[in-house]
Amino acid sequence: MDDMLKAPVGTTRMHILAWLREPALAETGATAEGVAARFGLPRPVALTHLRLLTAIGLLHATPLGGRVYYRCDEVRIADVARRFEKGW
């Protein structure tokens, strides 16, 4: 639980989550390469952010055609938001 609270704090991760929630990406998601290009990050840095967001349950990682696509777990995001609203 402590990892979950620490992990998403950071504007880059919050921007990644917001971007992945856009309608064009919500269904298919994006690759680490796509995230790196969108945010001007080296691929390893983008991958670190994506893996961390996946590890805490805010993203799903789906292998497809030799690549991994990341997309938001809307149920988990809503659950975390509810907990913070309740003064967790």
Rank of each mutant, 00 (worst) to 15 (best):
P44G: 01
E74K: 04
A32T: 10
V80S: 05
G29S: 06
C72T: 14
A81P: 14
V9I: 15
K6S: 10
I77G: 02
L59N: 09
A37F: 02
R13L: 02
A30S: 14
L59K: 12
R76C: 00
A36F: 01
L5V: 15
K6A: 12
A61K: 08
A7Y: 08
V35K: 02
G40P: 09
R21M: 15
I77W: 01
R67I: 00
M14Y: 02
A61M: 07
D73M: 05
A46T: 05
L50D: 11
L53D: 08
L17T: 01
W88A: 13
L59W: 10
A46N: 09
K86R: 14
L58W: 08
C72W: 00
V45D: 08
W19Q: 12
G57T: 05
V80G: 03
A37L: 10
R51L: 15
P23N: 07
A26E: 07
L20E: 09
T28W: 04
T31G: 00
L20W: 10
T31Y: 01
F84I: 15
G34T: 04
V75P: 00
P44I: 00
L17S: 04
R82G: 11
G34F: 04
H15P: 00
Y70W: 12
L58D: 01
A37N: 06
T54F: 06
R83W: 13
A32P: 09
L52D: 10
E33N: 05
R43C: 00
I56Y: 07
R71N: 05
G34R: 06
L50A: 12
R43L: 08
A36N: 01
R13Q: 03
V45C: 02
K6I: 08
I16V: 15
L5F: 15
A18N: 06
R38L: 02
A55M: 06
A32I: 07
E85V: 11
R21Y: 02
G10C: 05
H60P: 03
H60I: 06
G66T: 08
G10N: 09
V9P: 09
R71I: 04
T11E: 07
E27H: 08
R13S: 02
M4G: 13
D79L: 11
T28P: 00
P63E: 15
A37R: 14
D3I: 09
R71Q: 07
L64S: 14
A7D: 12
E85P: 07
I77P: 03
P8E: 08
R51D: 14
A7W: 03
K6P: 01
A61C: 05
T31N: 04
A24H: 04
G29F: 02
F39L: 09
